[in-house]
Amino acid sequence: MSSSQTTTVNDPHLDNTTTTNNDTLPNNNSQEPSTSTDSSQYRSSTQYSFKPPPENSKTSTKPDLDDNEEEKRDDSMYVCNICLDIAKESVITMCGHLFCWPCLNCWLETKPQRQLCPVCKAAISKDKVVPLYGRNNEKQQDPRSKKSPPRPQAQRTEPDNSQNYQGFQSFGDAGFHLSFGIGAFPFVFFGSSFNFNDIRQRNGQNGSQFEEDQFLSKVFLWVAIIFFCWLILA
């Protein structure tokens, strides 16, 4: 009763089935995905799936597509890979797969020990998904008001402005605390290092740069402590 069979089906159509198949439908009217949920309709339609496609299936009805149809084709690009509906509170993984945030969060909570992308099984984590903000973003409710935890924040990098020296203007910036702190040596180091934690965590910016900064601040902290001890001993 063990299990490790590796026969999985490579499925290039998974993401865009609805898009491609619309082209080859023999008759769009009869196959129009009805909103009806009548089960008898589905029963009868299964018979269709066994028939070979009619010969004229390649003579596509593309020009006949009305606006509604066109809209659906466009929408199918933005379907969540879990609920198969248009993605709401969309997030995208580093491997490029689109999900609703509640869906992805539910999947990650189902398997806390194996955090894999549901589509390509790449390693993913909550911290490394990117939220997508569309134009009508402000109409959306605050995700935090819902049951699922808030969607992760986007990471935003300030444009590089090193060319015109603005050091004094960015006085409040945590990085500059260091250079000004040297005057009142060890004490300010304590202050600035704690500042670091505070500001970054509040912003939810916990990327690798943050880790690097934290490491640096720790190093300086120890230098300060050693310096302090040396002062006392001497």
């Binding site: 196959q31 269709y48 799936s49 066994f50």
Partner: peptide, 23 residues
């Protein structure tokens, strides 16, 4: 499942591989 049903009946690839799904 409802959406998957639509996917199945749209997919002619399924018809060629002789796969069938019913309730």
């Amino acid at each position: 499942i409802k959406r998957e049903f639509k996917e199945v009946l749209k997919s002619d690839e399924i018809a060629q591989c002789s796969i069938k799904l019913e309730l």
